[in-house]
Design a protein around this nucleic acid. Structure first.
Lengths: 195, 195
DNA sequence: TTGACAAGAACGAATGTTCGTTCTATTACT
DNA sequence: AGTAATAGAACGAACATTCGTTCTTGTCAA
């Protein structure tokens, strides 16, 4: 009986397909990855893939919404754990750095891919819920006087722009070593930009 | 006599093709733009396009290298006009903002497109000469004591990361009005991040 | 225990279309 | 006359997707 949680098992065709697609999409790009490429790399049949996903686009859409949801959950956790804008924003940046190190493909797909090109129905990433929540954190910081009285857009950009760009550099292979070695210095810069 | 400078004349098929391709590539993406789309939009024939460019990839490559060169020239001008790291970097950011307002497609293609996906032989943008020059400016600022003693990568990212992200937001349609309205505040944030 | 049956999952050859490119013909210029 | 430019029909490879089939697993009657 029971034991219903076998769904992330990897031997599951659906998960295997998702994992493989994510890897190929980020490595070669959505349009340079054919369904046959995914089939070969994942060692599953075309039929199987189409049994689990209605189309290539839906496959990419699944990846995208999963990732957005994970990121939203991650931010919720931060909100629950920390109370000040400073601590919250710092924790979000830290989480992004950590994720970029441990799951580069996931972060690359979320931050660097141009989803609008292959998911015409999705909003741009920067309008997605997680990014809205980041802006709300900054707004709270301004209201409480933690962050000086700037245009919220500018403050948000000043805080997250540097770290996000650093992540992009890392994911583009322009940076040696782990991202972590830059975290403290980077955060100090970002915070002092808005205080 | 001679009058050799007719090359940006617009009635010239080659330029017209380039202009149109840039517009379509940035609007719909390289892979969602067919040669027939360009042909229709520019009112030229397939034969003409292939007379001027050997392939779709070479067409995109022309756009890219032209743009990189323009940006390099722009930075050279800044280097000639200003002497301090502060003034130079500020001028580069100002030029980027200005260009993003007046030629959004050009900046979108340069900063936001994922060239590696359709120009497999090009280096990543962030390794191109203009971006190298930006890093050199920052290094000079550190050496001269204008910028405090940070890891050069972090300092560069702290300075340019915010502004570049702001430009990306604007080009993604997430920002109202002109970029200029944010320039002073944004620059103040960036500079105070590294001093 | 066995055999019949059902249903979801996996399979992969075949299909129809799209797209970049080539080819041949025609026109403009010098 | 000869070269550069334009034209658009035709080509062939690559692609996403379909569909009829096979495999696997579980259920239930005898």
């Amino acid at each position: 009986m029971g034991n219903a949680q076998v769904k992330d098992t990897f031997s599951d065709t659906r998960s295997l397909t998702l994992e493989t697609a994510l890897r190929l999409f980020t490595a070669k790009g959505y349009f340079n990855t054919s369904m046959q490429d995914i089939r070969k790399e994942a060692n599953v049949s075309i039929g199987s893939i189409y049994h689990h996903f209605n189309s290539k686009e839906e496959l990419a859409g699944s990846l995208y919404t999963d990732l957005v949801q994970r990121m939203e959950a991650l931010i919720q956790d931060v909100l629950a754990e920390y109370g000040t804008a400073h601590d919250r924003i710092r924790a979000v940046v830290a989480a992004l750095f950590q994720m970029a190190d441990s799951e580069p493909d996931a972060v690359r797909f979320l931050l660097c891919a141009k989803h609008r090109e292959f998911l015409p129905c999705e909003k741009p990433v920067c309008s997605s819920r997680p990014f809205e929540m980041m802006r709300e954190m900054v707004q709270m910081g301004i209201d409480r006087g933690e962050i000086c009285d700037l245009d919220p857009v500018v403050a948000t950009t000043a805080l997250f722009g540097g770290p996000i760009r650093l992540i992009q550099l890392k994911l583009d292979g322009a940076l040696e070593g782990s991202l972590w070695q830059y975290f403290d210095e980077m955060w100090a810069c970002s915070w002092s930009a808005v205080t």
